[in-house]
Design a protein around this nucleic acid. Sequence first.
DNA 1: AATAATGTTCGTAATTTTGCGAACATTAAA
DNA 2: TTTAATGTTCGCAAAATTACGAACATTATT
Lengths: 99, 99
Amino acid sequence: MNKNNFFTEEQNQKAKFFKALAHPVRVFIIEFISNQSCCYSGDLSNILPISKSTLSQHLKELKNAGLIQGEIKTPKIKYCLNVENWLLAQKLFKNLFKI
Amino acid sequence: MNKNNFFTEEQNQKAKFFKALAHPVRVFIIEFISNQSCCYSGDLSNILPISKSTLSQHLKELKNAGLIQGEIKTPKIKYCLNVENWLLAQKLFKNLFKI
DNA sequence: AATAATGTTCGTAATTTTGCGAACATTAAA
DNA sequence: TTTAATGTTCGCAAAATTACGAACATTATT
């Protein structure tokens, strides 16, 4: 049994999305962005009790998981939900719950 | 700003549930249990390409997060979904997606 | 009492995550 | 050309996660 492809793509994708959301800071960010549809890193930096480098890392993880995307509006960066993947995550989670 | 209670209980709870599901093995286990409503650790051990000690740890994490519960049927242990918390997770996730 | 069946816990190691400050890059403004 | 504003990346350290085999615990069976 090959350990590398034992799990389905869906299972791996679900785990990836869950992992991206497995931290209160990242849950907060996603909720914050959801409410405003978009936001700037500075908005978050003003609110969250973490350093800007740490915040940058959390944003990077959400980006790598495909849940958000950044658009450069120099000198700022505007972060928005990656709608396509957000809908995919929603679909996978619904499927998990058999909703 | 007190870093320890910056996040809401809901945000912390969401992160905790997400974290519990942030691994393909645990996604698999939850889906497997969901389909059968319950299962024995041995059933999973026969299927999953991991050692029984590793499996035991994953089950422990799901238990600690409150997503499953074990009932002793010596010499086996019967694992089932923790329905109450599973519904709570479902509610929180729905809320996150504004479904 | 000895053996088998089923899982958990312990000890260990490798890897990943989390977090920070300092340094850096980029562009706008003075 | 400085200086300010906005973020990212680097280097480091502490903590958590992942994984395994060996040892252990519990109960059923011989």
